[in-house]
Design a protein around this nucleic acid. Structure first.
Lengths: 126, 126
DNA sequence: CACAAGATACGATTGCATTCGTATATAACT
DNA sequence: AGTTATATACGAATGCAATCGTATCTTGTG
């Protein structure tokens, strides 16, 4: 049986590493660590360990053909974002996505953002 | 110093209990347990313990004037929802609320929901 | 070849979330 | 008053997330 890849929720540390991989593309542990250590004081082996765990969970895929393994996200950023939103909608908005959306919008939303969202709403109706 | 009440992120179990309190209003451990045990097999003392921890964290307030303490949310549902959304936007959307909103909307959004969101966008622009 | 640099693997620790059993206190009822 | 029901408090076990030290392996270089 293949592992169920759907509905895997990355932990906070895992999401941090995924963000790096989505941004820079497939990367070695060292490359990922170089990026995260710019903003955090995280040890090299910590990053390594988390990536190994993510590999076990199938959150990332791993190319072992070279000595330094190359990691890449198993799922797209879009897919993961949607999963996280669905999870939050279920747990904190009674399952209602529109309630979530309306709560997310407030006076800090800029005119440009409002225009973008309007455009998306128009497209959805077609 | 007063405890910082801002940005407190309830855990999953805590959010479950908060949902009950927001729905039914201030309640005793037994009342909360009665509700959650309809859908989950959670022990009475588990609910008690979590509420006690939430009290320590100031996620709930507690009226101890009667033998059975009465618990109530320390923050509104709206406030908590906004906090959770802000947290998710930061961690998974590069801080962009509009990106989050646009990701949340998809073909499953109904016409009524779209209309509601449009209305809110109009209100925001005023 | 031998060694240094740098990689993975592994194990141990810490802390938090979650769960529940048991002890103890209080109230109610006969 | 004594027994039963029900409440809180407390402590312990479990499991996962996160961190890092150390061991081991591989590779390139002098």
């Amino acid at each position: 049986m293949a592992r169920d890849n759907t509905n895997i929720k990355p932990t906070e540390a895992e999401l941090t590493l995924l963000n790096v991989l989505w941004k820079v593309g497939p990367a070695t542990v060292r490359q990922v660590h170089d990026v995260v250590s710019k903003t955090q004081k995280t040890g090299y082996t910590t990053v390594l360990k988390i990536l190994q765990i993510m590999h076990e969970k199938t959150l990332v895929i791993r190319d072992e053909s070279n000595r330094a393994h190359v990691y890449a996200p198993a799922n797209s950023e879009t897919f993961t974002q949607s999963s996280l939103l669905k999870d939050l909608a279920t747990k904190a908005f009674g399952g209602s996505t529109s309630k979530l959306v309306m709560r997310a919008l407030d006076e800090s939303t800029s005119k440009e953002e409002i225009a973008d969202i309007r455009q998306l709403l128009n497209d959805l109706e077609k």
